[in-house]
Amino acid sequence: MSEQEIQWFDEDGKRIDGRDKDEMRETKMEADVLSEADGSAMVEVGNTRVIASVFGPQDLHPKHLIESDRAVIKMRYNMAPFSVDDRMSPGPNRRATEIGLVAKRALEPALEMEKFPKTGIDISMEIIESDGGTRAAGITAASLALADAGMPMKGLVSATAAGVVDDTVVLDVIGKEDKKGNADIPIATINGGDEVTLLQMDGDLTKEQVDDCISLAREGCAELDQMQREALHEVYQTENGGDQ
């Protein structure tokens, strides 16, 4: 088994990229990065980099998708061909469709869709570089872009993943830990609080590990929530004279 070959922790208990077990990767967020979109955001979590854009509320095509009492989200998750170590053939595939759907369901509970009947909101998450946790970074970016677009929402959605490597629970798994580790659980919460809007699981783990993963990831979400708010304050500063 490949798990035995990799030494996941060094003698100080640090992970393969030098982090502690409960430490997030270095994360950067910036909102309002695109001028043509109604709202946009870029989120960098370690080497993972995502740009999210929001257009709308606007006319929805095709017409048969229209709901007469609320807005409809069209979600797109797309990985750039150069985002992974070997070139990836462009265009939607089964995985991208699935992630688009779960990301939509993770964001919808936070949005006030009834305010915009008969319209559509186009959200796109472009993965520029991928090193694990792209769906989590995508959701974090999309929620920031929605706030930037002036959507009424219950709160910001932040997402991260916790996983198990070498029978130890770790926060914010990187690509290698995701692929070769035992398991990972991505989680999204509203306002970094009690309301969980996304919870997936991939791999083998015990009941106790599930509980540990969830509580660890929720702490991570709360941390990301703070960073999202700082990024929005940054937008206000730049728009109203950066001299303060």
């Binding site: 936070a110 709160g155 910001l156 306002n191 999202q228 708010r229 929005l232 304050h233 206000y236």
Partner: peptide, 12 residues
Amino acid sequence: VKDSNDIVTPGE
């Protein structure tokens, strides 16, 4: 908890 014209974010 804020002053008038303070900047706020969703869910704050």
